[in-house]
Amino acid sequence: MVRQQPSVVRIGARGSKLSLAQTRTMQLRIAAALGAPPEAADEVAPITVITTTGDRVQDRRLLEIGGKALFTKEIEEALLDGRIDCAVHSMKDVPAELPPGLVIAAVPQREDVRDAFCSKIAPRLEDLPRGAVLGTASLRRQAQSLNRRPDLKIVMLRGNVDTRLAKLEAGEADAILLAQSGLNRMGLGDVPASQIDPFEAPVAPGQGALAIQTRTEDFHAPWLAPLRCPQTALAVAAERGALFALEGSCRTAVGAYARIDGQRLDLVVEALTPDGTRRFRREGAVVLPAEGGERAAVELGLELGAAVRAEGGDALIWTV
């Protein structure tokens, strides 16, 4: 059943500069979908800032305090309580399983998927001096970097994009890794020294994409249709299929990257031991059918993810 077009859509989001930048972009698109001009966006698509546990606790890795769901939990509660009508998340922050009653209703066109290498002393990870300090709170980035450069010293570096860049500037690390998409959305796309090939070092599943989350009954609301990018949704479906198969969380170093050429979807999935010494990788492809393409993408992700999990086993799990 197609629901009646609402007059107002209340948006929930985190309060970081990056979250607000990407949410404001979606706010304008939602306002347009509701038939309102840009200057009326705050009236027809008001933004409610919600502070999450992941935002409040900045001195520990997410795996130590409950995983990346801590970036979505309070926002999802507001959705279920009816205080907001949709949430704008970074897709890579959305856990593999959603709470009952909620759904990813739209996946807009993806930004740059790559990890960005930021440093004042070297143009690439390979060029860092021996024993250099790399700052990251991502277990995946840590493991992939140590796999390529086992001599590096890893320091835990959490915080918003501007906070981590300030720590780099202050010399707390010789280099840091960030998502190029986030830098682009904040107008900082020229900050990185270089970018890392996502096929050589697969990114967090869904990196570069946004997720518009709603209550299940609102999935067919007319205002959502203009926000959807079918190609991005297919690529993200494959990557998140791998995430689900690997039970990916902040306790596993999981990367997945899907690219689409015509009707062909190629997917690479990898998981590493936390110290980067062992790397388990699978590649595959599927020709997407005219109908049921998302199911085929998910199944490929599940297949490759299960193969990686079967080979890596318990060695892939970080124990605190």
Results as ranks from 00 to 15, higher is better:
239 E>N: 02
197 D>R: 14
206 G>S: 05
235 A>G: 14
193 A>P: 01
236 V>D: 02
256 A>R: 09
224 L>M: 12
192 P>A: 11
247 E>A: 13
262 G>V: 09
252 T>G: 10
199 F>H: 03
273 T>N: 10
225 A>D: 10
274 P>K: 06
214 T>P: 00
199 F>C: 02
254 V>E: 03
222 P>Y: 10
197 D>H: 11
215 R>V: 14
268 V>C: 13
198 P>R: 05
253 A>N: 07
194 S>M: 08
206 G>A: 04
252 T>Y: 07
198 P>D: 07
267 L>P: 01
209 A>S: 13
239 E>W: 04
251 R>G: 02
220 H>P: 00
195 Q>M: 14
272 L>V: 00
239 E>L: 10
270 E>C: 11
258 A>W: 09
201 A>I: 12
203 V>N: 12
223 W>F: 15
226 P>K: 12
274 P>L: 03
237 A>M: 04
238 A>L: 07
223 W>T: 02
200 E>N: 09
222 P>G: 03
261 D>Y: 07
196 I>V: 13
220 H>Y: 11
213 Q>R: 12
201 A>K: 01
220 H>A: 13
215 R>L: 14
198 P>H: 01
237 A>I: 05
205 P>H: 01
236 V>G: 11
201 A>V: 15
271 A>G: 15
218 D>H: 12
197 D>N: 15
213 Q>L: 15
246 L>G: 11
200 E>K: 14
245 A>P: 05
211 A>M: 12
245 A>V: 05
204 A>G: 02
209 A>M: 08
227 L>R: 06
212 I>Y: 02
237 A>W: 10
252 T>M: 12
206 G>T: 05
234 L>R: 14
200 E>T: 12
236 V>T: 13
270 E>R: 09
260 I>E: 05
199 F>S: 06
